[in-house]
Amino acid sequence: MSYRTSYSQPKSSLSTSKVKAKAKSSSASSVLASPTSLKISSSRFDSIPRGGGFGSKTGGKTAFAVAYSNGSIPCRLVTGTAKMALEWKQTFEEIDYESILPLCVEGLKEIAHPYFTVAKMACIELVSAEIAHETIPPILPEVIKRLREVMVTTSRSNLDAFATSLEFLIGLSNAVTESLTPHITLLLSPIAAEMMKAGSGRTSSAAKSCTKTPGGGGEINLKEKSLEVLQILEENGGEEAYEIIHKKIPTYSR
């Protein structure tokens, strides 16, 4: 929006210099009032997704975002000069995996900070805990249901979330081993779709930064990561897992 100010020839005794000074002052005030000029300093940040402030119930789109905002997720994001970390309010032995882990998996659908960041870090840490092999098997049906929803909904629109779901699946398989085998059929379709995409494979840049992998960071090739997932599922699930994978994805072989 542009602002214009017109002045008629002065009929009073005001001098020409005073009129010009008054016009300059009025023009400056108009510019300051412009909404566009007020946003110049922050406009470069407008496209960055962000959630509501801590304690806010706005900004997220899942039950995880609501739970994290009202303090039901027993952790908080701590940021430092070089990295971010989660600070847990409970030990892993005290955490209610039955309610917390499915919520964190659902949180992988989020795109706003801090929800997606917290969800992916929490997922990796929960399946990496020593107690995971005992606490997760009974709740696998619900975890797999939420994970499938994430993989299906993010494979096209949110590559970082899809990559994180693959990383989580690797950790989940390592935690529960053959207990996962009866459920893997539900997860093979989105993995197969990614592997069949033309070219050398799409890449994601964010997922690995929150894993336990030394030197995490850098890009993840989703086609290569999908193949790695299948290999881990087979390794932990044995012959039964291989038969299920090969039946769904005939191109997969040892």
Rank of each mutant, 00 (worst) to 15 (best):
G60T: 02
A112I: 00
C104S: 12
S26I: 12
G52F: 09
L101K: 07
V105E: 01
S56Q: 11
F116Y: 14
K120V: 12
G53E: 13
I95W: 05
A28S: 10
K89S: 14
I40W: 02
A65P: 04
V118R: 00
S47V: 11
G71V: 07
L101N: 07
A65M: 02
D96W: 07
F64L: 05
F54W: 10
K20E: 12
S128G: 15
L32I: 09
H113C: 06
L38D: 11
E106G: 05
A23L: 15
I48A: 02
C123V: 07
S34F: 02
K89D: 14
K20A: 12
T91S: 15
R50C: 09
A67N: 11
G55H: 06
A119I: 01
G107K: 01
C104P: 02
S27A: 14
E98Q: 12
I124M: 10
Y68G: 02
E93F: 07
H113A: 12
L108M: 15
S128W: 00
A33S: 12
I95V: 14
E125G: 01
C75H: 01
L32F: 02
P35V: 02
E93K: 11
E87A: 13
T58F: 09
R76N: 09
E106F: 03
M121S: 09
I124K: 02
E87W: 06
M84I: 08
M84Y: 00
L103M: 13
T91H: 03
T117I: 04
K22D: 11
S29G: 05
D46L: 06
V127K: 03
A82K: 15
K120L: 10
S34I: 01
R44D: 07
V66Y: 13
S128F: 00
S72P: 00
L77R: 05
L38M: 09
K61D: 13
S29D: 11
L108A: 07
R44P: 00
I48K: 08
F116W: 15
S47P: 01
H113Q: 10
E110Q: 06
E125Y: 03
P114D: 05
T79I: 12
S72W: 08
S29I: 08
I100F: 06
F45L: 15
A122E: 01
M84F: 00
P74R: 02
P114V: 10
V66C: 04
S43C: 08
K24R: 14
P74L: 06
T58C: 02
R76T: 11
L77K: 05
L108R: 02
V105Y: 03
V66M: 11
T62F: 05
F92L: 01
S41E: 10
G80V: 00
V78P: 00
F64P: 06
G60R: 04
T91P: 00
L32E: 08
A63R: 15
T58S: 13
W88T: 14
E110I: 01
K120W: 08
K18D: 14
A33L: 08
T36C: 05
I40M: 09
M84E: 15
K18R: 12
S42W: 07
E93M: 07
